[in-house]
């Protein structure tokens, strides 16, 4: 019974709880700080991932493709452009632009 009065285990367990809580808080804050540093890297404005409505470089290539009279040269350039499209070097949809320019040229010819 006297042991129960002078039992200090309750006091010790309270401080242990606080130490554990402090460690958890520090770990969570560390994760938040790391997350904030990762988010700061989103501040790199990437030209490619933004939605683009026009790719001037690709259109120049397409205009020159349609202006070429030599069919061998034309097919060579088209293969190269398709390869560039597969390597995702264009910022706009290559096939739809190709079809659009082709349609407009045929329309003008008529």
């Amino acid at each position: 019974m006297l042991n129960k009065i002078f039992n200090k285990r309750g006091q010790a367990s309270e401080s242990m709880t606080w130490i554990a809580a402090t460690l958890i808080i520090i770990v969570l804050l560390g994760i938040s700080i790391y997350a904030a540093s990762l988010l700061s890297k989103l501040k790199i404005i990437d030209y490619e991932t933004e939605e683009r409505t026009q790719d001037i470089i690709m259109e120049e290539s397409l205009f020159s493709y349609f202006s070429i009279k030599d069919s061998d040269v034309q097919s060579k350039i088209f293969k190269s452009l398709e390869k560039m499209n597969q390597e995702e070097k264009f910022y706009e949809d290559f096939n739809s632009k190709f079809q659009q320019i082709k349609f407009n040229l045929e329309k003008n010819e008529k």
Partner: peptide, 12 residues
């Protein structure tokens, strides 16, 4: 970036 173009003599 690279692109294709022609001169006045249609050379690519």
């Amino acid at each position: 970036r690279e692109f294709y173009s022609l001169d006045s003599e249609n050379q690519a």
